[in-house]
C-alpha cells in the first residue's frame, strides 16, 4: 500500500511515512533510552550506596575516596565527565586486557598520538559482528552514567544516613547490636524516607540526562531525530520533505515533558506512602490530617 507514496492522501502518506524502516529505528531508540534508565538507575544506586558507605567508613583512605567521589561532580560540568569516562574506560579495559593477554609485547602503548594495544586486546575484537560493537558502546555508556550518577546518589544517600536520628542508633547499640547489625537493621531501612526527595530529584535529572547518550556515540533518539528530520530529496527516498528537524525535536521535547510529569506524579504518591507513620514532619502532617 505504501509502495507509491505519490498517490496517497496526506493522512495515509503520513501513516506510511511514520512507519518506514528508519522510523522504526527511532521508536527502537526510545526503547534504548528506557533500557538505559532501567539499568542505570539501580546501578547508580549501587555505586552511590558504595560511595556513601565508603564516606562513612572509619578507615581514613576509604573515607577520603568516598568523599572525593561524592564531590567530583560539584565543581566540574558533568558532560565533561561523560566525554572523559567514555574514552578513559575504554582505554582502561584495553590496557588491562593488553597487560594480561599480551605480556611479551615490547612496544609502548602510547605512541605519540596513538593508543596501540595488541589485536587480541582490542575491545570489541575487530572480527566481532556489528551488534557486539553496538552492545559494547551501550555498555560503556551505561557504566559512564552509573559512575557519574552514582556520585550524585552517594551524596544523597550519605545525607539520608546522617539524617536518621542519632537516638535510633543509640537504641540499637543499647540492645547490644553490633555496628554492622545496627547499620543493616536500623539505619538502612530508615534512611530511605530521608533520601527519597533527593533520589526522586535524581531520577528527574537522570531522565533529563538521557539525551546525552548522543554524545557517547550511541544511536539514540537525538541521533534519529537529526537523521530523519533533515531535508530529504526525491532521489533518495519516496517520502521527500523539507527540513523537519524542528518538529522532530518538538516531539522529543513533548516526550520528555510527559515523562517527567508522569514520574513526578508517581514519585509524589510513593513519597506519601513512605512518609506514612514516619517520625518526620511529613508523617506528622499526615497523621494530623487523618485525625
Amino acid at each position: 500500500m505504501c509502495a507509491d507514496p505519490d498517490t496517497l492522501s496526506s493522512f495515509w502518506w503520513m501513516t506510511c511515512y511514520l512507519t518506514t524502516g528508519k522510523h522504526l529505528g527511532l521508536y527502537w531508540a526510545f526503547g534504548t533510552v528506557l533500557l538505559l534508565l532501567a539499568i542505570t538507575a539501580p546501578a547508580a544506586l549501587m555505586f552511590g550506596f558504595g560511595g556513601a558507605m565508603a564516606a562513612r567508613s572509619n578507615f581514613l583512605p576509604l573515607q577520603w575516596f568516598g568523599k572525593a567521589y561524592m564531590s567530583i561532580v560539584r565543581g566540574v560540568p558533568d558532560i565533561a565527565f561523560f566525554l572523559f569516562f567514555v574514552i578513559a574506560l575504554d582505554q582502561a579495559f584495553e590496557w588491562t586486557r593488553h597487560k594480561v593477554l599480551c605480556p611479551d609485547w615490547d612496544q609502548p602503548i602510547r605512541q605519540g598520538n596513538d593508543f596501540v594495544v595488541c589485536d587480541a586486546a582490542k575491545l570489541p575484537l575487530s572480527t566481532a559482528p556489528q551488534y557486539i560493537h553496538e552492545i559494547y558502546g551501550f555498555a560503556l555508556a551505561v557504566l559512564t552514567f552509573a559512575i557519574v550518577f552514582g556520585a550524585f546518589a552517594a551524596s544523597v544517600l550519605y545525607g539520608g544516613m546522617r539524617a536518621v536520628p542519632r537516638g535510633q542508633i543509640e537504641t540499637a547499640e543499647a540492645y547490644g547490636m553490633s555496628h554492622r547489625q545496627s547499620f543493616r537493621r536500623i539505619l538502612v531501612p530508615q534512611m530511605w524516607v530521608y533520601a527519597l526527595p533527593g533520589l526522586s530529584n535524581l531520577w528527574m535529572v537522570l531522565i533529563k540526562a538521557t539525551p546525552l547518550l548522543f554524545l557517547l556515540g550511541v544511536p539514540d533518539i537525538v541521533y534519529w531525530a537529526k537523521e530523519l528530520g533533515g531535508t530529504k530529496t526525491p532521489q533518495f527516498t519516496s517520502f521527500p520533505h523539507g527540513d523537519w528537524r524542528m518538529w522532530y525535536f518538538l516531539f522529543l521535547l513533548v516526550f520528555y515533558l510527559a515523562f517527567t510529569k508522569v514520574s513526578e506524579v508517581v514519585l509524589d504518591r510513593l513519597m506519601k506512602r513512605l512518609t506514612h507513620g514516619q517520625a518526620t514532619t511529613g508523617g506528622e502532617a499526615q497523621r494530623r490530617a487523618q485525625v
Binding site: 533529563k208 540526562a209 537529526k226 528530520g229 522529543l252 520528555y256 517527567t260
Partner: peptide
C-alpha cells in the same frame, strides 16, 4: 521539565 540539550537542539532548528 525538559532537557536543556533538547531545548538547544529545538531552539537551533526553530
Amino acid at each position: 521539565g525538559s532537557p536543556l540539550f533538547i531545548q538547544f537542539f529545538f531552539g537551533y532548528f526553530l
